[in-house]
Amino acid sequence: MRIHGRGGQGVVTAAELLSVAAFREGRFSLAFPSFGSERTGAPVVAFCRIDGRPIRSREPIVEPDALIIEDVTLIHQVDLFAGLGPDGYVLVNTSRSFEELGLTGLVERFSPERLVCVPATEIALEHIGRPLPNAVLLGGFAALCEVVSLEAVAMAVRERFGRVLAESNVAAASDAAERVHQHLKEWSRARAD
């Protein structure tokens, strides 16, 4: 997994939460940031490997299976999709569509059912009251690729945050998961149509 965002958006935390969620499900995981002295607002990348056996490699993930993009404004700054295989998952924090983002070409390179937009910041504002999209995205991510369960994400969130913040995050994550499920359902229905 590779997570892109900006300093202050909780990119690193998202990777860590993801790793904890995987750990809670009895798997091995390794989360680490693209180490740097980035300040608030600078582009940030974090990584998370999840596996059924101990993870030894510590190289940065150059060929991710999944991407979480916390900030779409990065699209024109960073080669966000570098190394992503044709079956890769992409979860983008946006209230717009890929088309609206001008990423139509991109969509065509990947499996369209694995490319999902979710308005995580909006959801966060709604549930948490602050624009913290990372746990929200993890909820959506759990729904999208099922590498970790929503419950495990909730456990990780509850381990990390105080009760009130944790519950609002869990609620937001559940909301996002619901929306992704909804989206996937709609997509398969549309495809079936």
Partner: peptide
């Protein structure tokens, strides 16, 4: 190793 280990979340 700095960052590689210090900042890595693992078991």
């Amino acid at each position: 190793d700095g960052f590689v280990l210090t900042h890595a979340f693992e078991q």
